[in-house]
Every structure is written in C-alpha cells, then in structure tokens.
Design a protein around this nucleic acid. Structure first.
Lengths: 269, 269
DNA sequence: CAATCTTTGTGCACGCGTTCACAAAGGCAT
DNA sequence: ATGCCTTTGTGAACGCGTGCACAAAGATTG
C-alpha cells in the first residue's frame, strides 16, 4: 500500500469511515470483474473473498452506504457498481495533471487504470525545457511555466507529483495556488500543505523497507527455531515458518547478522 | 499511500506495532537528511515536524525500540540512524527481482531509492521473449523461464510484481515456490498467497479514487455552504473551503450530479 | 553542589476499526 | 399460506493506535 494520508486526520466524512472509503475501490474492482462476466448477484461472502477481506467487514462497509442488499440473495452487482461509483465520485470525469515526466511520470501517463475509472490525464508537465513538446503516452509534454494556465483552463483539482524530492514542495505550492485541492505525491518528501488540501503519499522505498522488516523477522524466527530444535522455545511465539519449502534460502541464511556482532534482536522481551 | 497489507493481519511482530514499523522508514529518511547536514542531535519535536507526525507519537514509537534518547538533550542522530536501520533490517543487503518490465517496471528499475536503502536489484524479468537481453537501467532483461534459477542463485527473498493483472497471480506462485517470502505487488489484483508470505500492494488507481471521494465531498460542502449563505448550516460540519482561492473550479462545479438526478449525498444524517 | 530548565519516556483515557454472533428479512419449496 | 433456509444488517465487545499530560532524568548554570 502506499503510505499514509496527510492532514485531515480523523475526518470521517459524511459518516463514512476513512477505512471504509479506502476499501470501496477494492470492492468496485471486484464488482466490475463480476459485471463483465455478467454475474447478476453476489453474496457478501463471495465478494469478500474476491476482494480479500472479511465478509462481516464488507457488510458493515456497505451498511454505511445504505441497504443495497437483499437478504437471502445478496447484492445486485450492477446496482452496487453504480452506487459505489457514485459514492466515490467516479460518475464524473476528473481531469488530472502529472508533474514530472521522468521514468515514473511516463509510466503513470501510460497507465491504463486511470482512464478506466473516470480519471483523465489532462496534461503532462515537466520543468525540463528539452522535454517540452515531446510526445509521451500520446500527448505532448508541456513546460512548467504553463502550469497555472493548464490547471485553470481544465478545471483540474487533482495533481500527481512525480518529480524529484527537491522540487516536490514547490510544485505542490504552485498546484495548490492554482486551484488543486488533492495531491498524489510520489516524491519521497513530506509535503506541507494548507488545511483543506488532501495529500496521499506513495513511496516505493518505504514499502520495501516494511517488507524487509518482516523478512528479517522471519529469518530471525527461523534461526531461533532451528537453534533450539524441538521443544517450546519461547512463550507465545507462533510456530510460523516451515510452511514454505526451504528452497534457495541458503544464500539469505548466510547473509544474516550485520556489523556489530549482536544478533538482530530475535525474541520478544 | 499504497493501500493495505495482506495476510498477517494483527502480527505485532516482536512487540513493535505494525503502525510503528510503517513509520520507521519515515523517521529514517528525516534522520538521514539531518545526518547529511552533520546535525549531531535532534529533539523529538524537531524530528516529528520533519517527518510530519505528532511528537508524542514519535517518542512512543522510539520507546518500542528502546531508550535511545537523552533527556534534556534529544536523540543522537547517527546512533538513531543505525538503530532504526538495524531494526528494519537495512544493515544487510536485500536482493530483489522485478518481474514485468513494462513502463512501470522500467521506472522501478531506474528508481534510485532502492539501492540507497540496502536494496539491490538482482534481476529484471519479463515474459516477452523480445525483451530478453534488452538493457534496462544498465542491466540485461532476463526471460521468465529463468525465474526460478535467478531467485535461487541470488538468494532473493523479496519480489516486485509489475506485470499486467492477469499474470500477477501466476507470477507470485512461481516466486513463492522458488523461495520468495515477501512481495510488493503493483498489479491491480488481490494475490492469494500461503501463510508466511507477506504481500504489500501499491495501487495507483485506488489512491486516486480515494482522493476523488474527498474531492467530491469538498465540492459538495462548498456547494452547500454557498447555497445556505451565512448562518450555521449543519451541526458540526467544519467551515472548510474558502481557504483556497476559487480559481478555475467552475468547470468542476458544472460537472456535478451524475445520472439519476439526486444530489450526491451532501450532508451527514 | 543545588536549583532550574529542557526533553524524554510512559500511564491513561478515548475513539476508531474489526470481528463475532444473532435477530430480522426475504426468497423458495411444499 | 406456511415453514424452512439463506443471507443481510447491526448491536456489542474487544483491541489497536493516538494523544494528553506529567513525572523522572539528565544537562546546565550559578
């Protein structure tokens, strides 16, 4: 997952919990797939499985939107698709601009998932004069000088920042001044924005670091389990491991233990 | 933020809350910046501001790692960098493979943030035979046929999936069978994986949809506020809006209201 | 060495989110 | 029409995460 909203901490907008809002797109995707297969209705159990969540959670989530199900039957797929789309505001067209057309910006521009959901890339903007005019994803890249004009002429309220970290804050300020009130930030920086502006941050490096943490923990548990052979080693530490076939883990095994000889903290206190 | 961990729901590993783990990379980044400026110590207040979090939260987070601060002074930057790095497992080198070298995969391969944090791109893998041998980000793309061999020879335990949605599940199964136990998934699909495997999902489209929800809500509040001019309109609905200059919002304004004439639910119950 | 000032570390309370478990609701068969 | 079976919608309990507020700890100054 991309990490963390910023500002607007406990906004529970319109009574719909933030956590539920974050799951609606997930449900919508699963429902769209069902819709394409012409499935007429779906139970909370089935849909929950498809979306990878608990069925009780799904029902509670839907209950915030209203009573759109039929007891004994399930939910009407088409109707639910429409209701969720409407709730998320996807029945309207959202023009977005992407600022910073490097590798990532170009990838985003080419990403098909945007247009499929009511988002339209209105413009690609880059600070490099050499980029201006170049075609990316079928559009011509425009220069940062025209940023304000582009935002205003297209009624853009959502901006995507894919610039280097150093430029992100300044870009966000210009976007906001021009009328943008929601920002999706891919730059590895904490943006400071005024109240009323939503920022969501996607940070690839952070995601990997979180995985590394769990990975290290797994390696530690594994090592501890191996060390104290059978027998209850620790208190409530789950058995874990031993599920996945120990394929080519040898290399990883050998690598363990960084500088300063102490073991990377294997066990709870 | 990328959305949602999968599996391993409430794992509180080693006593460190999941929420804290997710913030450690954030602190680490702020600390690294301080370190580069040769700042010797930093208070929880300063560091919290730099990381964009509450200072009490930061102190509590650090308290899970141990008592690394000095009362009356603050935290030693270098020491804290080391401790967090160690906790996150970044003192060791993590080889990762990227599967699916399309626009996004190529962008990831070129992303500098990986190598800067102990992650090393061990291989780029694609299913298209035409891609094999092509240079991307200074490495030669390899074919999916060799996936298992690559994983095992390099001791890879972290895989990044940047394939189309249709291929993601199958790729994940092959990765896992070959020994990968952590996956960063960029494909818009819910992966089903066995216990013991961590999956984190980054979904660009979902992030935008969440922004759209809030954006719509803001537009709704704005409209409602304009409709009932001054005077307390609703109960606790914050004033909001009126902060950002009403630039080119007209286009967005006019677009409101999808099919089926009812207003998109503006007010709380 | 004592007083003062700064900043950490944490006990506590509160609120959000998740999950269980069940009653109410509706379809369907007889 | 009646009873059974399925599935929703939700009340209630629980646990995690957050933030306040303060006591303890250490530095610093006189």
């Amino acid at each position: 997952m991309a990490t963390g909203r910023t500002h607007r901490p406990a906004t529970r907008s319109r009574g719909i919990p933030e956590a539920t809002v974050a799951r609606l797109p997930l449900y919508l995707r699963a429902l769209t797939a069902l819709s394409e297969r012409s499935v007429p209705t779906v139970s909370s159990e089935e849909l929950a499985a498809a979306a990878g969540v608990n069925s009780a959670k799904l029902r509670k989530d839907f209950s915030y939107l209203g009573s759109y199900g039929t007891r004994g039957v399930g939910y009407d797929v088409e109707y639910l698709v429409y209701q969720i789309s409407r709730e998320l505001g996807l029945t309207q067209d959202w023009p977005v601009v992407i600022v910073g057309i490097g590798n990532l910006g170009a990838a985003l521009a080419n990403y098909g998932g945007f247009s499929a959901r009511g988002f339209r890339v209105a413009a690609l903007i880059d600070a490099d004069p050499a980029m201006a005019g170049k075609p990316v994803a079928g559009m011509s890249v425009q220069h940062t000088d025209d940023l304000e004009k582009i935002i205003e002429e297209n009624g853009v309220s959502i901006g995507v920042i894919a610039t280097p970290a150093g430029a992100a804050q300044q870009v966000s300020e210009r976007l906001i001044a021009a009328g943008v009130t929601s920002i999706l930030n891919f730059a590895p920086t904490v943006l400071s924005v005024p109240d009323g502006v939503d920022v969501r941050k996607v940070d690839l490096s952070i995601e990997l670091q979180i995985l590394a943490f769990h990975e290290q923990r797994k390696a530690g548990e594994e090592a501890a389990a191996a060390a104290s052979e059978p027998g209850s080693a620790v208190g409530g530490a789950a058995p874990a491991a031993a599920v996945v076939p120990p394929a080519g883990r040898t290399a990883a095994e050998a690598r363990k233990g960084g500088p300063e000889g102490d073991v990377p903290a294997v066990m709870p206190a």
